[in-house]
Simulated scan of single mutants.
Amino acid sequence: MEITDIETIPLAHSLPAGEGLGDARGFGHDRATTLLRLETDTGLVGWGEAFAPGPIATATIETLFRDDVLGMDPYDVESLADRSYTDPYHFGGSVFVQSAVSAIDLACWDIIGKSVEKPVYKLLGGTERSSLTPYASTMYFTETDRPIAEPMREAVEEGFTAAKIKIGSNLEEDVERVRTAREVLGDDAHLMVDINGNYRADQAIRTAKAIEEYDITWMEEPVPPENLSGYRELKHQVDIPIAAGEAHFGRFEFKRLVGERLVDIVQPNLARCGGLSEARKIATLASTENIGVRPHIWNSGVGLAAAIQFAASVSDYPNTRNVPEPMMVEFDRSVNPLRHEILADPFDPTGGSLDVPQAPGLGIDVDESAVERYRADR
């Protein structure tokens, strides 16, 4: 079996004026990503995603990878990440190269699963899970006035038993947002906070100590991703578990987070970290140092499917049935047609539990007519 065709498909969706997605760094008005479609001489089609702007992802794939991918056996996929670090030399560590590798890697795994008629998570090894716990990403900062409790009430009404909220604007507002979220969620639910790297270490420490009483499952990106000394300082002074990884890519960057024990949880994004092959190596690094793994998800339906397959395989080590800790996957609760409209059967995270797809490959059928509606290059 060999790959006979490769197509990059940039997608974009703009939010209405005044309805931007807000985090501590500001407001965004566009959702964009890049899909990859691979076709083989057997007629099998695989889908991948590069979490990168369409023009950059397309140029990277066309310039650096197209000639190698055409004619490639999808089963050779695990050598792709290694080759990306050495050929082209000096470029392999860049986020755009690793995003391109991610797209190709995911599409190849999709094809492999389809060729053996098994879902990808069964091929990855590790722990097999038939269901996961979805958590709502919600309580964004908004451009228009809206009661801060309202999004969390909606999540609870949908059946979510875990949620992550945005904080990081100032200490007083951080405490108010966390207090409100905990009151609405209840005492038994998992509550995470995300600062999006907007604080210095001293600011993050003050917030962590102020919200500690609200039983926070993890504090995400308390300082910028490049501020490794800041993570080190936080680890020595904060009792809340620290999570990071969405802005890191490739196992070598994650090795620093893991090897220096700068975080308690790593969060590879499957469309940026190097794909499933690299994510599996990252998970092995993490489990070797007894660090948790929870995928980051801010993707289209394809990247979401990949994250679900990966999460279903992540090792429980060293936990046993006597240490109940659910494998949680992120579900953004903002409007995003790139997540649900491009799938023939969209994921439904409501109700507190998510069944892992058992169909071959990534377990999804991509609605190519919907993909065409959101193409950014037409």
Rank of each mutant, 00 (worst) to 15 (best):
E39V: 14
E39M: 12
D41N: 15
G43T: 07
L44H: 07
L44Q: 08
L44G: 06
G48T: 01
G48A: 03
A50F: 05
F51Y: 14
F51D: 12
A52Q: 13
A52P: 02
P53E: 11
P53I: 07
P55N: 05
I56T: 15
I56Y: 06
I56L: 15
I56K: 06
I56Q: 11
T58Y: 01
T58Q: 13
T58L: 03
T60F: 01
T63L: 08
T63C: 11
F65Y: 14
F65A: 09
F65H: 09
F65W: 14
F65V: 06
R66W: 10
R66K: 13
D68C: 00
D68P: 02
V69R: 06
V69F: 05
L70W: 05
L70V: 15
L70I: 15
L70Q: 09
M72V: 04
M72N: 07
M72K: 04
D73M: 04
Y75F: 11
Y75S: 12
Y75N: 13
D76P: 11
D76A: 14
E78Q: 11
E78P: 03
E78S: 09
L80Y: 05
L80R: 03
D82P: 00
D82T: 12
R83I: 09
S84L: 08
S84C: 13
Y85S: 10
D87Q: 05
P88W: 05
P88Y: 04
H90M: 10
H90G: 08
H90S: 12
F91C: 06
F91T: 09
G92V: 06
G92M: 03
G93F: 06
S94L: 13
V95K: 08
V95E: 13
V97Y: 07
V97E: 09
V97C: 13
V97W: 04
Q98A: 01
Q98K: 05
S99R: 03
S99T: 09
S102D: 07
S102L: 00
A103S: 13
A103V: 11
I104A: 08
I104T: 11
D105Y: 01
D105M: 01
L106M: 13
L106N: 06
A107N: 06
A107E: 06
C108Y: 02
W109N: 09
D110H: 00
I111M: 04
I111G: 09
I112V: 14
S115F: 02
V116W: 07
V116I: 14
K118Y: 02
K118I: 01
P119V: 01
P119K: 01
Y121V: 04
Y121F: 15
K122G: 08
L123W: 05
L123V: 09
L123A: 10
L123Q: 10
G125R: 04
G126Q: 02
G126C: 03
G126Y: 00
R129I: 11
R129V: 13
S130Y: 05
S131N: 14
S131W: 04
S131Q: 12
S131H: 14
T133E: 14
P134W: 00
P134A: 02
Y135H: 07
S137P: 07
M139P: 06
M139L: 10
F141Q: 01
E143W: 03
E143K: 03
T144K: 05
T144E: 12
R146Y: 07
R146C: 09
